[in-house]
Simulated assay, not measured.
Amino acid sequence: MFDTSSTKALLGPADPARGVPIPPPHARAVDLIALAEATVTIDAPSGVRRRRILVPVAAGVAAAGLVATGVVAGGRTGGHLSGVTAGQSTAPTPTRTAAPTPTWTAAPAPTFGPVIRPVAFEFDKQPPATGDQLRALAAHLAPSRCDTTTGKYTFIHTIGWNAVFDDTPDGKSQRIIPSEKWWWRAADGSERDRTTLLPAVYPNEESYRYYQKHPVQPTGTPAANVLDLPPNPDRAILALPTDPAEIAKKLLTGGKPFLFWNVRDWFSSHAVPLATRAEVLRILANTPGVVWRGETTDRAGRKGVAVSLDDKGARHVLIFDPRTGEMLAWDDVERPVDTVAGSTLLLACERTDKLG
């Protein structure tokens, strides 16, 4: 990867800017993309071979540019809502505040890494049929905190990543930048997003050893980012469908390869009701290619049960709480190298009147 210094050295005497001091470096694209991703999920089609990064190149570059120029991904431009030209904003400007002291009940911080490997399954080889297992699970679900708590806001806490970055010219050493997100959204579309980038982790031992010898210098990327948005019906949470046929239609939008991604998105942005959780399990049970992986432990140390779907060089994994049917984790594993190219841990989901 060329930086300013290496480019000037390559030009040599032909450099028209010889003698001009090199300004301090800007935040690197990988950090900008990770920060943008922490604010909004940008996904590539499932099943596509993704060697380095899970977002299309154009989308990743756009996300980096949006953050670099003050445009927050997700349709928020220069502090105004998308579609409103400069000087014509009709909505209050979103405010960015210093990271507040948390007031919610914090989930235990997962301890994973520095090397990230796929989770271990009870049935790694020759997994049994999944239909009866998931249907039995769906028939005996218990309420979760998202069913029993009340309040103005839906609160969701996640940790995850959606990209593996190459930081070396030969592309042999990669790193992963997890982001932690706390998200509150009310029915009127007002919300608070609190995100922070976590220390890098690595997809294999070779990458970890390389970065121990060649540490990445800080680039000035904010350690925490808090965004408050005023009420807006365009951001209001749309209710999930309740009719089984409509739930199946929505989850299978784009075909079977998108099923696991859509389940991940529902649990990452909604307090999914018990009846809907049961129907999600039944849809997975009826989908050809979904296999039962049995008991497992996610990266937060929680016991769960897992199912997987293999598609075009990728293994999609969902881990559920066997008591409530809530999603605990989602993984997208690149095969056969077993790089965990994308992951989401759902650490909390509830309703509350308090902002953190």
Results as ranks from 00 to 15, higher is better:
36 A>Q: 06
76 R>P: 06
25 P>F: 04
60 G>P: 04
54 L>F: 04
88 Q>I: 01
40 V>D: 12
114 P>L: 12
52 R>N: 09
37 E>R: 14
114 P>H: 14
98 A>G: 14
113 G>D: 12
75 G>E: 11
95 T>S: 07
110 P>D: 04
17 A>R: 13
76 R>Y: 09
92 P>G: 13
54 L>V: 07
82 S>T: 04
21 P>Q: 12
91 A>K: 03
29 A>V: 15
22 I>W: 00
20 V>P: 10
90 T>S: 05
34 A>F: 05
55 V>E: 09
114 P>M: 10
66 L>H: 04
86 A>C: 01
83 G>H: 07
92 P>I: 13
53 I>F: 14
84 V>D: 05
95 T>Q: 14
92 P>H: 07
102 P>S: 12
86 A>R: 00
104 W>E: 05
38 A>I: 11
79 G>T: 05
33 I>H: 05
41 T>E: 14
76 R>V: 14
92 P>R: 15
104 W>R: 12
23 P>K: 03
31 D>E: 15
41 T>G: 12
69 T>Q: 05
62 A>W: 04
55 V>M: 15
36 A>K: 08
34 A>R: 11
35 L>M: 02
16 P>Y: 09
94 P>M: 01
26 H>F: 04
110 P>I: 05
37 E>Y: 15
35 L>E: 02
94 P>H: 00
114 P>Y: 07
27 A>V: 15
23 P>V: 03
66 L>R: 07
106 A>N: 11
104 W>K: 05
13 P>F: 02
83 G>A: 09
38 A>S: 15
18 R>M: 13
29 A>M: 15
38 A>L: 11
99 A>Q: 13
104 W>F: 13
74 G>P: 08
32 L>T: 07
56 P>I: 13
100 P>C: 07
60 G>A: 15
118 P>W: 06
12 G>W: 02
100 P>M: 10
83 G>P: 01
112 F>W: 10
98 A>K: 11
15 D>C: 00
72 V>F: 07
89 S>A: 12
114 P>G: 11
59 A>S: 12
108 P>K: 15
84 V>F: 10
65 G>P: 04
16 P>V: 09
26 H>V: 08
13 P>W: 02
88 Q>N: 02
23 P>Y: 00
11 L>F: 01
27 A>S: 00
74 G>N: 10
87 G>Q: 05
81 L>I: 05
13 P>A: 06
66 L>Q: 10
71 V>A: 09
79 G>D: 11
74 G>D: 09
64 A>W: 07
36 A>F: 04
33 I>T: 10
11 L>S: 03
104 W>I: 04
44 A>W: 07
61 V>L: 15
109 A>W: 13
44 A>C: 07
67 V>D: 08
106 A>H: 06
56 P>Q: 13
103 T>W: 09
82 S>N: 02
118 P>M: 10
28 R>L: 03
94 P>R: 02
115 V>E: 10
70 G>C: 12
20 V>Q: 14
61 V>A: 04
34 A>M: 06
60 G>T: 09
113 G>A: 14
50 R>Q: 00
40 V>N: 13
54 L>C: 08
97 T>A: 11
19 G>S: 10
93 T>C: 01
13 P>R: 01
16 P>S: 11
102 P>C: 13
78 G>V: 05
51 R>W: 00
111 T>E: 14
79 G>Q: 02
82 S>A: 07
15 D>E: 03
45 P>G: 02
82 S>D: 02
36 A>N: 03
15 D>F: 00
